[in-house]
Design a protein around this nucleic acid. Structure first.
Lengths: 158, 158
DNA sequence: ACTAAATCCGAGTCAATTGCTTGGTTTTTC
DNA sequence: GAAAAACCAAGCAATTGACTCGGATTTAGT
C-alpha cells in the first residue's frame, strides 16, 4: 500500500463529504473551498473514487457527490487504494520475484516489507470514515515484545 | 516516516553487511554485486548511514564498512530515517500547521496520520537487523478490541 | 615510491509522480 | 436557453528516485 499525500487529500475530501452530507449531494466546489484543494484535482480524485464504488455522482445544477455507503461502512484503506496507483513491483516485491528464488539471502528483507504492509493495511482497515468524524482514532495496537525505549525521533508518514 | 525503495535498498544493504561481517570490513562493491544495486548509489546511501553513526568506514584497499554497533542493536527504523529525507511538512503536517488551528474540521484526519506514523515507527523500531537475519519477522502486533461502532465512550488519545 | 583498491564527493541525467491548470463536453435544473 | 454541476483530456512545473560520470583522497601491498 502506497502512502502519499494523494491518499491524504482523498481522505480529507471524503471526511468533508460525509461531514456535510445532508439530503442534498455535496458539490466538489464546496469541498474544494473548504479543504483548499484545487477543484480540478478533486475531480480527478473523485473520478477514481467513483470508479471504485465509494461515491455516487449526481449531475446537473444542485448535483454533487454522495457516499455510496454509510460512513461507518467505508474504511480509510479503501479510499487510499482507490486513488493511489497500485504498488510498483519493486526488485523482489510480489509473487515470483526473480531474485527471491535464486538467492534466498537476497530477500531476507522480503518478510519485513510484507509484514510492514500488513500492519499498515490492518491499521487503515480498522478505521472507518465515521471513526475519523467521531475522532475515535487513538492508540489501538500493542506491541508484543518490547524494546528499550529511547529510540524516539519525530515521525510522520508521507 | 517516509517509506520508499530508497529505505529498502539501505536495509537490504545493511542486512547484507551484517550477514557477511567477518574480521575484515565489507566493501561496497561486494554488496553491490550480491544485492544488484549500483555501486555509486550504494556509496550515497552509506554516506548517510555513516553520518548517522550506523556504520564505520575503513579506507584503502581491503577496506570497507563495518556495523558501528551489534546487529541486535540496530533497528530498521534507524536505517530508514538515516537515508530518507525528513518529512516534507504537508498542508497540516506537524506542529502549528496553519489550517489545523483555523478550521478544526479541516484536520479531522490529523490524528489519523499521526497515529499511522506511530504504528509504522513502532513496528520498524521493534525489528533489529539481527531479527531480519534470523528471520524472526512475523505477525507481532495485535489489534486491541475493535471499538463497537455505536457503543462506548471515546478512546483515550494521548 | 608506485599501483591499485577502496572510500569519498559533487554534479548531472532521466523517468515517474504530484499537484495543479486550461479548455473544453455533457447532463440537468430552473 | 442559461447556468451549475459532473465529466474528460492534455499539458506543465517542481520534486524525487535511482542512477551515471568523473574525479579526489586514503592506504595496503609490492
Amino acid at each position: 500500500m502506497k502512502l502519499s499525500t494523494k491518499g491524504r487529500y482523498a481522505v480529507m475530501a471524503m471526511v468533508d463529504l460525509s461531514r456535510h452530507a445532508q439530503n442534498k449531494p455535496v458539490s466538489l466546489s464546496d469541498i474544494a473551498s473548504r479543504q483548499e484543494i484545487s477543484l480540478s484535482y478533486l475531480e480527478q480524485l473523485f473520478a477514481r473514487l467513483r470508479r471504485a464504488g465509494l461515491v455516487k455522482s449526481v449531475r446537473g445544477p444542485g448535483g454533487g457527490y454522495r457516499l455510496a455507503r454509510g460512513a461507518d461502512e467505508i474504511r480509510v484503506s479503501e479510499i487510499i487504494l482507490a486513488v493511489d496507483e497500485p504498488i510498483t513491483a519493486t526488485r523482489c516485491a510480489d509473487l515470483g520475484g526473480v531474485g527471491c528464488r535464486t538467492d534466498r539471502s537476497k530477500c531476507l528483507t522480503h518478510d519485513l516489507w510484507e509484514e510492514l504492509g500488513n500492519q499498515i493495511h490492518l491499521f487503515l482497515s480498522s478505521v472507518t470514515l465515521q471513526d475519523v468524524l467521531d475522532r475515535k482514532i487513538g492508540p489501538r495496537l500493542e506491541l508484543a515484545p518490547v524494546l528499550p525505549a529511547g529510540v524516539g525521533g519525530s515521525m510522520a508518514v508521507s
